[in-house]
Structures are given as C-alpha cells and as structure tokens.
Write a protein that binds this DNA or RNA. Structure first.
Lengths: 193, 193
DNA sequence: CTTGAACCTGAACATTCGTTCAGTTATTGT
DNA sequence: ACAATAACTGAACGAATGTTCAGGTTCAAG
C-alpha cells in the first residue's frame, strides 16, 4: 500500500468534509472518515497534518488553514505549462478572496454594463471588484457618478482638475463641473467564461 | 442603544475571529468576544445567527456558512451604483472561490505571458483559471502545447479538424499536425490592478 | 529470523462543550 | 405608568471533546 498517496487521499476527504460541513471534523468523526478504530490513530494523523500545514491549532482547537480551504493551485506562467502529478500536490493553494480583497468591509462586486472601458480589457458582463471610500490615484479606474448615471472611467488628475476618461474611442472624456461622486476604485476585473 | 446595528457589530467581530483563527469560536470564547457574562446569552445569539444564516449547525456543531466567510458583497450592475448603508448589509455575500471554481481538484491558476489573446481581453500579467482534463468545446479558450511551448488560444473545430486561433491579428492560427496537447480550458480571467 | 520504527487498537482521563433551568434586568408598546 | 416581551445572569447538567497510556500489528532492513 502506498503511503504518501494514502495521505493525499485523506486530505482530499478532509477537504470534502470541510467544504460541505463548513468546519473541521472532530476526532470521532475522523474515525469514520479515515476508517480508523482508535482516536489515537487520529491524533497521530492530526499531528502530521499540523506539521504539513493543512490544519493548525488555535487555543487547543483545530482550525483550517488556507492550504486546506484554499482551492486554487497557483502555478507559474502559461509558458511553463502544467506540472506532473507529483509536482501538482506541492503547488501552493491560495484563496481568491484573500488574494484579491484587502478590505472586506468596503469591497463590492459589480457587473459591468456598457463598453466604455473595453480598450482596457473590461468588457460588458465582466465583474469588477470595487473598493469604496478610497481616494483614487491618478489613472486609477473608478466607478463614478456623472449626470445621475454611474459609469466606469479612468480617473485622471491634470492641471485643469479632474478628468474622467473612457477607454473607448467612441466616447469622450468628461470633465465634471461641480460635483463628482466617486463610488470606488476598481481593484480587480473578473470574467467568467 | 441600537439593535440591528448592535447585531452587525457582533457579526463583524465574529467575522474577524473566523478569519484570523480559521474556525468558529466556542460559546465560552463568544462570552469574551461579545462581552456577555452568561453562556445562555451566547446561546440566544447563536440562535439568531442561525436564523439569519450566518452560521449553521452540522451534527450539533456550529459551522460557518458562506454568508459569514464570503467576504464579497454582490451588488447589481454598475448603473445602479452604490447602495445606502442600510441596503448594504442586506447584500448577499459570496465566496469567489465557490463562485468561480467548479472542480477544485483540477483547477489551476496560471499567469498569462504574451499578448496572443489581447483582443479577447486577456492581457499579459492576467491570471487565468484553468480547468484541466475537460474536453474543450468549440470556441473555448484553451491552454495548449504547440512545438514544446504552451500558449493560450481559441479552440476551434471545423471541417478540416482542429484550429488554434489567437485573438491578435499579429499572430497566425495554428493547425496542429499530429499531436495536440490540451492543458485545460480557461474558465475565468482575473486581473488585479 | 530478528529487530526496530512507524502505526495502530482500546480504554481511561480530566477538561470543556453546548444546553437547560429558574430568576433577574432591560426594553418596548400601550 | 404599567404590563408584556425580549434579553441576560448564574449555576447545574450530561455528553462529547482531545489527550495519554500500555500494549498490539505491520512492514522493511539487517
């Protein structure tokens, strides 16, 4: 019987449990899950899992790490292609939320309608991750209110003031007269295919 | 003292605990967290949290739901703009991983190098979410190996067979002679700004 | 075959868990 | 002001928790 593969299998069923139940199983539940007959066997396994960083202990209690909950294996560049199954299991797994969202309380997900930013690679139907309440820097992409309508534009500061510039030759830049409401700064673009 | 706001505050500190500790606090820990003096007070609060869907019970144990762990508030379209703080708290929170990844075991994250798909809005430096081991459908974007090099192309099936087509006029389509290795199908594109 | 290490069984243990109860305090509507 | 409802305190409870111990199995190396 293989040993390392065996551990991987156990990690998989652990992952499945955590995903469906929303929590780490108790030692008793792991008995059934890993087909042990003694809680001490579980104790040994947990020791290993802690050592490899799949779970950790927080005040005596078991806790999931991002290595366990993170579902995405982060690989290198496209050119490198895909790794062999052996390398595969060594890949770091990450959590997209943690990776993309800095301030959960003020970050929102909006659907893009319109093609005003299409030359910046933001298409209609794309999702944009918008962080509210931050003062935009020059050339940030922002969600702004112009004439009672919300749009996505480049935020540009020049000698005359502030300019909202689309990334589409069909549209013209807007120079807000008096009021300019900035909804937030676009931190990421997500397209589901 | 406000009531609903009070609950929101508690949910916030709960979120913070879950994020840093990787698990739901015990009732005793919630005593300190919510500044109660009786476990029964916690018991009542948990009842509420379950009712509102922030936590759930799995076999008697407390478990986190995506409403608690999901950090992103999903709003409508850009046109709708931003909601008032009152509406804000009602927004559904989602988990990007769950939203984007169907099959965690076979999904990878790659960095795009090269501009062969730039007209499809896939820029160098973007991340692509690639699902391995699926047979691509016509006009899917795939990661394929051509002449020992991995690239991203449209996968097109026509009368002559299979064609790998870039989304960039500067490059030409490739018709694989004998072998064609498909690394996977691109399911999502992510750009961090 | 023997030895040693890694892994496991099964039972015992103190500790901690979430729940429940009776009674008090705070908050709300009439 | 008063009653009704909700929310909380504090203590008690059995059940379940993770840990530990002594002893068994398995398996590969010498």
């Amino acid at each position: 019987m293989p040993r390392i593969l065996d551990l991987q299998m156990k990690i998989r069923s652990l992952r499945r449990f955590v995903k469906t139940e929303g929590r780490i199983p108790t030692y008793r539940e792991m008995l059934a899950l890993f087909e042990y007959r003694s809680k001490n066997a579980v104790h040994g396994l947990v020791k290993k899992l802690v050592h490899f960083g799949y779970v950790r202990k927080s005040r005596g209690k078991l806790a999931a790490t991002s290595r366990l909950t993170g579902v995405l294996k982060l690989l290198g560049a496209v050119q490198a292609g895909f790794p062999s199954p052996a390398e595969e299991e060594l890949a770091d797994t990450i959590n997209l939320d943690e990776f993309l969202v800095e301030r959960p309380d003020t970050t929102y997900l909006l659907t893009v309608s319109g093609d005003s930013m299409i030359e910046a690679g933001i298409h209609p139907g794309d999702l944009v991750l918008v962080e509210k309440g931050r003062t935009p820097k020059n050339r940030d992409i922002v969600v702004a209110q112009v004439d009672d309508e919300w749009t996505i534009k480049y935020f540009i500061k020049d000698s005359e003031g502030i300019l909202l510039q689309p990334a589409n030759r069909k549209y013209e830049s807007i120079r807000p007269r008096r009021f300019l409401t900035i909804g937030g700064v676009v931190r990421a673009v997500i397209r589901k295919l």
